[in-house]
Design a protein around this nucleic acid. Structure first.
Lengths: 321, 321
DNA sequence: TCAAAAGTGTTATCCTTACACCCATGT
DNA sequence: ACATGGGTGTAAGGATAACACTTTTGA
């Protein structure tokens, strides 16, 4: 972020800033042994977070400070996810609002020492229905009927149709294809249908934890869902996977990392072609022997591609090239 | 936004919310007569904005309130753009931080009455170099040498190469293709190179307004650039253009709206095919006569597609379909 | 009759998808 | 020998891009 001229104009009436609390909150992701993980703190599942303060140089540096302080873990790649205010700040009579600015951070295996207060947890502990690498998860078979029943409880015919459609699109009902990017929409539907529950929230339909997943504090699971969705869509048009890889890696390791994030299996030959023809990687010359089979060539990320290309594709039929 | 359990845990030390001001700020866009426009208030170019207050039900409704109050203009489609804090709040000795939550809003021609305090201004008054519909803008010929000179002023060889590369990618130098989505990157480079200037900011290299565009208050031009970039990329994968169209329209009107937003011309036959094969529209049966030529069929948006499809495409070679 | 815009068709090319198959190493 | 993963080839289908051409109106 660069410096910018000061804001001298205030268009509306005189502001009143006090009573508004601003929190910074991080979804820190890494992939260990084919399992996508998120960094949590404390005994209950809580994302690292803390208030934005006057002493912070910027939002991002404030976030780095809090995460480092709570987890002893330095952050690499960071991007903003979403900012939201929650009205349920019922700390009894307090006239106070909470604003949360959430971030997605990516980090490498190498730096992943478990500190006493922080833990790496698999995404799929919280979202068992999101992992399709070994076939359709059992959770989806359970949710299907519940969601259809929930749709029928809608207040009027329009609302019922709407619920049914949303469920079908998000969960791939009625022979629709599964879309791994709809993680947030799925979570929100399950939340509305009371099929998941959170720490400090209202109770849900009784379901096994292996079906509805582990709860998190407050709305942290929703923020995690936002982060997963963002990452799943982003890996398709920007080379962010490499933020999660070691300096050198085999193509299978790269593929398995993407598979872990997407929660789906990828066709090997086509994946390799895709990676190589886009010139995202280059051979190091070395090979890896601990593969269980034929030794694999080692590759490294070609950082140069970040300069060469813009990574924002056209989908419009432009005129006269 | 749904209700969510209250935040009961505070991980960090006790927060201190006062002294932090939260502003809501809107880029309200519409297309009039093939010209993409933004809603401004006051004599100097200012985006509608105001502080988030305890009385607001949510961030979005707070934004709606402010925009409506300042411009008498109701908002339709809204999406969040970005949240940032600026450190340059040097109101002499004040220990206060400003946080701005910016939004992109789309609105229709129909609702576009000019109120006394608000005005519709073409994007391209602020970004003359972004409109490529009638060929390469003169501004780019002027910027080229300036940017190359600026790159040479870098502190060390790495910085110089980096500046040169960024300029080449963003502005399509060295025979690179023009990418209309890089509006924000281009603005940031021009700002760093002191080729644009803002109200209340440091002076720039002396350039005609037809080259460097009109200034805006504080960092509003940067926010506008963010909105333009977001919209230019979003029209490619979600049917948001229709938020800017009247209820019925001809295919040429639709094409010209997209062209206005993208700042580029589109191939007509291919555009029509694209729209029709994706089943985004349906014929109304009527025709428009005021086209200057043969009467054109009128179309309307097929709202049903929003339910049918997910609009999040795969780019990964998935295994065993 | 001409200009202006509406609208249709055709082709070459590239990218994606699906699948089949061979190679090198450890046990 | 065979299991395991590494690695290559190819052909079908669909989307995209480029361009040529016909149709219908008003002036």
């Amino acid at each position: 972020m660069r410096d910018h001229p000061a804001r001298t104009e205030n268009v509306g009436p005189v502001r009143n800033g006090r009573d508004i609390n601003v929190d910074l909150i991080a979804v820190v992701a890494a992939v260990v042994d084919r399992e996508p993980c998120v960094l949590t703190v404390g005994p209950r599942s809580t994302l690292p977070s803390g208030p934005f303060e006057l002493s912070h140089r910027s939002l991002q540096s404030g976030l780095r400070d809090w995460v480092e302080q709570q987890t002893s873990h330095p952050l690499g790649y960071i991007e903003q996810l979403y900012t939201f205010a929650d009205r349920d700040r019922m700390e009894v009579g307090r006239d106070q609002r909470n604003i949360s600015i959430s971030y997605l951070a990516l980090t490498r295996q190498e730096a992943m020492a478990d500190s006493p207060r922080s833990h790496w947890k698999s995404w799929y502990e919280y979202f068992p229905w999101e992992d399709h690498r070994s076939g359709t998860p059992e959770a989806l078979n359970v949710f299907g009927p519940h969601l259809i029943a929930w749709a029928k409880e809608g207040s009027d015919p329009t609302a019922r149709r709407d619920r049914r459609k949303r469920a079908a699109v998000a969960f791939g009902l009625d022979d629709r294809p599964w879309n791994e990017e709809l993680t947030l929409q799925r979570y929100e539907l399950l939340y509305e249908a009371a099929l998941v529950e959170e720490v400090g929230g209202r109770p849900r339909t009784a379901l096994a934890a292996s079906i509805s997943g582990k709860a998190m504090v407050a709305d942290h699971r929703r923020i995690l869902a936002t982060g997963i969705a963002r990452l799943r869509s982003k890996i398709k048009y920007r080379p962010v996977v490499f933020e999660l890889m070691r300096a050198t890696f085999t193509l299978l390791q790269l593929q398995q990392t993407v598979e872990a994030l997407a929660g789906r299996l990828i066709n090997k030959p086509n994946f390799r072609r895709l990676v190589e023809q886009q010139e995202l990687v280059e051979e190091t010359g070395g090979t890896s022997l601990d593969t269980g089979g034929r030794p694999a060539k080692l590759y490294r990320f070609r950082h140069a591609v970040l300069d060469e290309r813009a990574f924002a594709g056209t989908k419009l039929p432009l005129a006269r090239s």
